[in-house]
Write a protein that binds this DNA or RNA. Structure first.
Lengths: 217, 217
DNA sequence: CATAATATTGTTTAAGTTAAAATTAATAGT
DNA sequence: ACTATTAATTTTAACTTAAACAATATTATG
């Protein structure tokens, strides 16, 4: 019987994990909840409660958490003790930006290929030498997924008109988790089971800022 | 005494608003909470409660909400009855993608310029004919903001190393709202007052998917 | 035309979730 | 041994969502 962890908590855990990575502390040193507050913006109370809730009670009074242990625990929770391969559908600006996102490496996430329909893109490669990824035609998607059955995740950066049908196709071909970046709320077909979908358009944060700024009084 | 509206609610209001835009219904027709559930994914209960909470009691039993009225109310809440000008700092892939984000127009948001330091970018323009935006050198930022004092919002898409110092500079020059897309939690300097900041890295959603997919059982 | 059935809102209530605060206990340093 | 710091835990409060239901307008039916 596993405890349910909400996506909010997961987001904070991500912060802790990335903070640890960036601080690059020696493994046998300690980090306190205060310090974590300083670098992540999450209050030290929240940090401790998260750890408590997650069963990470490895802290030492007056010192904090042993970096080595904490790393291990966080990795376990984030399910990054194994690697994940992902593909990107849509090789436009956002797709390309995602394909070069360097923090994915720290999370054991590998982008293996991009897909598009534009002639001038298909057949080219993208990325720095040594980590180049091919841009393939989307017609080859099914074959590609059959040859790479360990790919279960796709990032969807196609125009909104094509988004829903592409999602349906992806699910049909065995993809189980999708992040949709198109400005449209997509739906998982009712008959599909155990599919994870997040709609995450890059514009929405700006809307929030506009609201916060101009709604005052 | 204005009621506080959380960002969650604002996000849903955005959904409703954009759904209305996309459905493009005649102004004198009605839309029900059920229909809104269908297109936005927000439950009809939630829709009604949002409207109730926000004081939008314009529904008609058995019909729904008059499109024209609903539009007006949503616009008022989202503070898009006036226009907002924004600049983009960093003219890389994400910056460029944002500058072309077509839904901003529907929200009365205008990107007026991008800033960067790369020689090959500075001096060029970006965007479709008729809505081209210049890429300026970041050294001209202060002057630009002095000449355009109505610009209060910036989108920050610079590399993470430069993110915090750029934020500080922006605030120093009068910017009041920032969305940071770099994979780093930025902080508003303590002495700054009434600054709105959202950290919204495009990678985090993928982390959540990885977690949801691989943490099962 | 009257009446019943139905769909839909407005509102309230309850449940669930999340975050903050307070308390207790342990430990290191002096 | 004393003090200050920090984690672990509990409690409390705040926020968010879901559910329930009465009220009412529209449509259907005899």
């Amino acid at each position: 019987m596993k405890k349910k962890i909400s996506l909010r908590v997961i987001r904070r855990i991500s912060f802790y994990y990335e903070a640890l990575l960036k601080l690059n502390l020696p493994e046998n040193t300690y980090i306190s909840s205060r310090k974590l507050e300083e670098v992540t913006g999450v209050s030290c109370n929240q940090v401790r409660q998260d750890f408590f809730y997650l069963g990470i009670s490895i802290g030492k009074q007056k010192k904090g958490y042993l970096v080595k242990k904490l790393f291990k625990e966080l990795k376990k929770i984030l399910s990054i003790d194994h690697s994940s391969k992902v593909i990107i559908i849509g090789a436009g600006r956002i797709g390309q930006a995602l394909s070069n996102y360097k923090l994915f490496k720290d999370r054991n996430i590998m982008v293996t290929a991009l897909f598009d329909i534009k002639k001038e893109l298909v057949g080219t490669e993208i990325g720095k030498p040594g980590q180049k990824k091919p841009i393939l035609h989307i017609d080859g998607l099914e074959t590609y997924l059959m040859e790479n059955p360990d790919i279960k995740i796709a990032l969807l950066t196609v125009p909104e008109e094509a988004a829903q049908e592409t999602l349906d196709k992806l699910i049909g071909h065995g993809i189980r988790g999708v992040v949709n970046f198109a400005p449209k709320i997509l739906k998982v077909p009712k008959e599909a089971r155990d599919i994870q979908l997040i709609n995450d358009c890059i514009g929405t944060s700006l809307y929030k800022i506009v609201y916060q700024l101009y709604s005052k009084k």
